[in-house]
């Protein structure tokens, strides 16, 4: 059976390299986008082979799902006639980039070679009982290295603010094919997205899952319902202060980080008996923020505060 496994790994690696080449060098943007979507799909399989199911889950949720929707929507907004495109064929470019790529590969190999060989896995396992969760990845993300996660959530909020500051969201044109399937699909599938998202959030405390994948799944559900014609009510005052959710993750993490100081702990050091509850609440807050950020990023601009028509596409 070792032979089959080897063939599998070689095929996977070769397909990944070929797809990466296609995604960057193919003439025609649609082919590049499709290659990138398939690249994300196979990358999830590669993470599974590397025994990193947490990253495989995140890659499946963000790489194959949300990124695909973002890229395809961007493509739909561009001029559609790009059959020829401009393939990247100048020799001068290749004579620079092939050695540069090989040099980078060499440096990365060197860096991987000199990594401390047992890593920090032992230490994480040893202090796992203090973290309040059973999944080492969640323990690192939201307890031991929660400061890094705080900054990541901050980056997401910053990206949303930057995109909204660029201007109002572009309104999609009238749909050429009016299908009754779509609203029904949105209505039936959205509860599935919500259910899977809650499940992943709950699983995060003892198995792969957690805020990032849960947020990505429910965010993808939000994108689906926007595609199906729902109004993005993020800024609408008539629908309540939903946009507060965008900053909920960051503010909750900051509140916890500073709040534990009042309890006599150092910055971001949770009291052991409260750690489980704190991690779960932070996951909930971060997951909601990530979902809202994904939807906000997908809108590609600030949604209007008032809607004239009944639906987005009239």
């Amino acid at each position: 059976m070792g032979g089959v496994v080897l063939v599998f790994d070689v095929l996977l690696a070769a397909a990944l390299i070929w797809l990466a080449w296609q995604a960057t060098h193919t003439p025609g943007l649609f082919r590049a986008v499709i290659s990138f979507i398939i690249f994300g799909l196979l990358m999830a399989l590669a993470w599974v082979r590397l025994e990193a199911p947490d990253i495989a889950l995140a890659e499946a949720a963000i790489g194959a799902g949300a990124t695909g929707a973002l890229l395809l929507s961007a493509l739909g907004r561009l001029a559609v006639t790009d059959e020829a495109g401009t393939p990247w064929q100048e020799r001068a470019d290749l004579t620079f980039w092939i050695p540069a790529g090989l040099a980078l590969l060499g440096l990365l190999t060197l860096a991987a070679w000199y990594l401390p060989s047992p890593g920090l896995g032992q230490e994480v396992q040893a202090s796992l009982p203090d973290s309040g969760v059973q999944n080492p990845v969640t323990a690192v993300l939201l307890n031991f290295r929660a400061f890094d996660t705080l900054l990541e959530i901050g980056v997401l909020l910053l990206a949303t603010i930057a995109i909204w500051s660029l201007g109002p969201m572009p309104m999609p044109g009238a749909q050429a094919i009016i299908s009754p399937v779509l609203p029904a699909l949105g209505r039936i599938l959205f509860p599935m997205f919500a259910l899977v998202s809650i499940y992943l959030l709950w699983r995060g405390s003892h198995a792969p899952g957690g805020a990032f994948s849960a947020g990505a799944v429910i965010g993808a559900g939000g994108i689906l319902s926007i595609l199906a014609g729902a109004r993005p009510w993020l800024t609408g005052s008539a629908y309540g202060p939903w946009r507060v959710l965008l900053s909920l993750g960051l503010s909750a993490m900051l509140a916890v980080a500073l709040g534990v100081i009042v309890l006599g702990q150092p910055f971001f050091a949770y009291p052991t008996h409260l750690a489980g509850t704190i991690v779960l609440l932070l996951e909930l807050a971060a997951g909601l923020s990530i979902a809202m950020s994904l939807v906000a990023l997908y809108l590609a601009g600030q949604p209007p505060t008032h809607w004239d028509g009944e639906s987005l596409r009239q």
Binding site: A69, L185, I223, L224, A228
Partner: peptide, 16 residues
Amino acid sequence: DVALVLALLAALTVVT
């Protein structure tokens, strides 16, 4: 779970 997420999100790509 990874398979579940992948199956669910494949619908999003094709709808987009």
